[in-house]
């Protein structure tokens, strides 16, 4: 264990002390009923535990971050609010639109339904991590060429999903592409152009 970790422990300890001392006030202000009940029962440790931040090591687009977060933070909020990677979009925030799609250890998932704390030690790729410097990823270039968007809000999710769709081997024909891209909704209705972009990348072959 290195010194940094030691410092974190000390920090956490003092946080816990603070919450222990201020239990009553905090509990009344925030008032979830079980917290009030816990306060009645003098369950100070339990309350401190509830508000305690936890250590998280996470690699995002090749950069390792050591963070301290509450367990309730979603991966999407961590990316957008703490790491300022606002490419991944919050569309519905309930797993229905796909705008928040990112890759976790190479697999496409919905970051809005993923708890960040559960991604400890994992590698995340967001839309910001696809291009190599100024060189666009082939899927990004194909979306531009085929006009695969209008307003662009769903595009980061579409592209992350599209890259995975090709890598998974689910882009062999239009029906298959439409079926495996069904989790990404586009309100502008750019679907035909999105399918064209994916088809071109698939047909060009090579590793993407």
């Amino acid at each position: 264990m290195n010194d940094n970790n030691k410092d974190d422990k000390t920090l956490n300890h003092s946080r816990r002390q603070f919450f222990k001392i201020s239990t009553a006030l905090t509990a009344v202000a925030l008032t979830p009923s079980y917290i009030l009940k816990a306060a009645d029962d003098n369950m100070d440790d339990k309350i401190a535990e509830l508000f305690e931040k936890r250590d998280l090591n996470i690699e995002v687009n090749g950069i390792v971050h050591t963070l301290s977060i509450e367990p309730r933070v979603t991966l999407l909020d961590l990316l957008r609010e703490q790491l300022k990677l606002t490419g991944s979009k919050k569309g519905c925030d309930h797993g229905q639109c796909g705008a928040c799609t990112v890759h976790v250890n190479g697999q496409r998932v919905l970051s809005c339904l993923s708890l960040a704390i559960m991604q400890d030690g994992k590698k995340i790729t967001t839309i910001e991590g696809l291009a190599k410097g100024d060189e666009l990823h082939p899927m990004q270039a194909a979306f531009i060429k085929h006009d695969g968007f209008q307003c662009g809000y769903c595009t980061p999710g579409q592209i992350m999903s599209a890259v995975a769709c090709v890598r998974e081997g689910h882009a062999n024909n239009e029906d298959e592409i439409r079926s495996y891209m069904a989790g990404n909704i586009c309100r502008c209705g750019a679907y035909p152009n999105i399918v064209d972009a994916i088809t071109e990348v698939k047909q060009k072959g090579g590793t993407i």
Binding site: G98, R108, L110, S114, S161, C165, Y180, G183, N184
Partner: peptide, 12 residues
């Protein structure tokens, strides 16, 4: 299984 949810959700 293929007819349920989306590939992102099935991956989770």
């Amino acid at each position: 299984l293929q007819s349920g949810a989306s590939q992102q959700l099935r991956n989770m």
